[in-house]
Amino acid sequence: MTATTSALRGRATPAPTRGSGGRSTSKAARLIPSGIAWILPAFTISVGLIYYCIGYSGYLSFFDWTGGRSPMFPVGIDNYVRAFTDPIFWTALRNTLIYFVVVFAVQVVGGLLFAALMHSRIFFASVYKVIIVIPVVVAPATLAPAHIQVWQTDGTVNQILKTLGLGDVAQAWLGQSTTSLIVVTLVGCFGSVGFGFILYFAGMSQIDPEMIEAARVDGASNLRMLFSIVLPNLRPITISLAILNFITALKLFDNVWLITQGGPAHSSEFLGTLIYAQTAGTSRNVGYASALSVILLIIAISVSIAIQRRGRERAVKLEEPADV
């Protein structure tokens, strides 16, 4: 904040200009944000590539088009109507919500738990840290075959169940509508806890030890300290994780496609796999896929703003002095 303020102050005192018209030049200079020349290349590429693509997707969403040089037929909002009347779209949204809630909850609880454990004095802490973080850094494409091996009908899970005498519980985890989403979600949890741990571990390091000490002196229990000191201090991290998790759930593609391809019968479909299937199928529906992408973008932006605003409101509420 301080740095920004001083930079603005710097701009308020323009350097002497050469020649006449210094007055108008300084006015113009004030209109151009500081450092614009430095960010212009990245800004141009960003606008040119990313925002151009977003805009172009929006444009394509109003056409029936199979890509390439095939003819484009304007269809108005038909692609959007198709999306909102397509039961697979709603299945994908429902799955996204379930995935987000479960993975976020597991990430927060697991991340906090491991972070708290690592901050306590335990043996081989560094080894545990590595073990917890490894799933974060390994590419989903590398882990997917292992997950398939674990969950397939003659896979590790069923073998363990049979060994334990629980053969009746063994089932085709990947090949059933009732269990395929569970597998995908568990795989998501597996990779997310480590990320939560990293952020919470760093966040806990930033908490002023004097606050903890004062709470201890006041006789606060561990649980009380967790809920009254640790968690409120980690709120920005939790909000960030919520936003990141929701966006991840919306964009989810790799693990799902590699493990279930959204099946069976679309039971583990997500927006990412649905969009991909529309563009990678033999008959490419680029217009419909674009409409789905635009919907995804709108949901992602809306929910991110909503989570942030909610987080700020709560933060303000907490900062307000309690009525005496």
Binding site: I148, Q152, T153, D154, A172, G175, G263, P264
Partner: peptide, 8 residues
């Protein structure tokens, strides 16, 4: 077989 839906 029962693993028919495990993969393609």
């Amino acid at each position: 077989s029962s693993d028919v839906l495990d993969a393609g």
